[in-house]
């Protein structure tokens, strides 16, 4: 049997960049958590907001579970107001996680808050890894990325830090044996196009979720093998199987 929702105590909840928060939770149970997996989280006891929020695992250290999240709506806003000593209800880990089996040289491509699952991935991925991180304006979490990467390429859309433009502007897929990506849909779509026929891609998909465990079919996406649940068969998919709508 899997655990249902558990209340974990918050160790810290810090705004590390505008609207970007890093929350650390005390986790005494040793659970196996794979990079790319997520938890459903809930930081309020009322029926409003109604649904828990899916948030991917940003890091797992001894007794500490870390999430990196962007304040987007009422749920994440409430969570951002929680303080040290408060509790957060979590369900998970959920989903499949990245495959760590690939050999050779790898590239990680992230856009904005899509960087959230990537540090924990970096820590668990073997071999030489180049990291391409794109941001709109403010850059965050780069110290941790630099620690574990062979090469780091940073871009901002407004040029306020490093390269002005997109992180894939200087991304050459022929240099890699595997590419792993998470970020806005247009960016992931472009990465998959660039890599098509050259190098396999693992892509972390996002979708609105209700149950988070595969029952409601609300987060389903279209793939070349039919409809798949982001929460159960995903959130990590092969780049070649995902069909982007619109």
């Amino acid at each position: 049997m899997l655990d249902g929702y558990k209340s974990l105590t918050i160790k810290s909840n810090t705004e590390i960049s505008t609207n970007i928060f890093e929350i650390k939770l005390e986790m005494d149970l040793e659970k196996e958590i794979k990079p790319g997996q997520f938890f459903m989280i809930r930081g309020w006891e009322t029926n409003d907001p109604f649904l828990p929020r899916p948030i991917s695992v940003a890091d797992v250290e001894e007794n500490t579970l870390t999430f990196l999240y962007e304040v987007r709506g009422r749920g994440t806003h409430i969570v951002s107001k929680l303080c040290k000593g408060d509790t957060l209800d979590i369900l998970g880990p959920l989903g499949n996680g990245f495959s760590l089996k690939g050999a050779g040289k790898k590239a990680i491509v992230s856009g904005g808050i899509g960087i959230a699952p990537m540090v924990y991935l970096l820590k668990n991925l073997e071999g030489e890894i180049d990291f391409y991180a794109g941001f709109r304006s403010e850059v965050y979490w780069m110290d941790k990325v630099k620690e574990h990467s062979n090469f780091v390429f940073i871009s901002t859309e407004d040029g306020s830090v490093c390269h002005k433009g997109f992180c894939i502007d200087e991304f050459d897929p022929t240099k890699y044996d595997e590419v792993l990506t998470c970020g806005p849909i247009p960016m992931m779509k472009r990465v998959i196009e660039l890599c098509k026929g050259i190098v396999p891609v693992q892509v972390s998909m996002e979708s609105k979720m209700a149950c988070g465990i595969g029952a409601c079919l609300g987060c389903t996406i279209e793939t070349r093998d039919g409809m798949k649940r982001v929460c159960k068969e995903g959130p990590i998919f092969k780049g070649s199987e995902v069909i982007f709508n619109g």
């Binding site: 029926n47 409003d48 907001p49 109604f50 649904l51 609105k208 979720m209 209700a210 409601c216 079919l217 609300g218 987060c219 389903t220 279209e222 039919g226 409809m227 709508n245």
Partner: peptide, 17 residues
């Protein structure tokens, strides 16, 4: 296969599906 596009939308104390 069900519907395409967005399938869930949270509302105050509820959910559109």
């Amino acid at each position: 296969d069900g519907n395409k596009g967005i399938r869930l939308h949270e509302t105050p104390s509820g959910l559109l599906n």
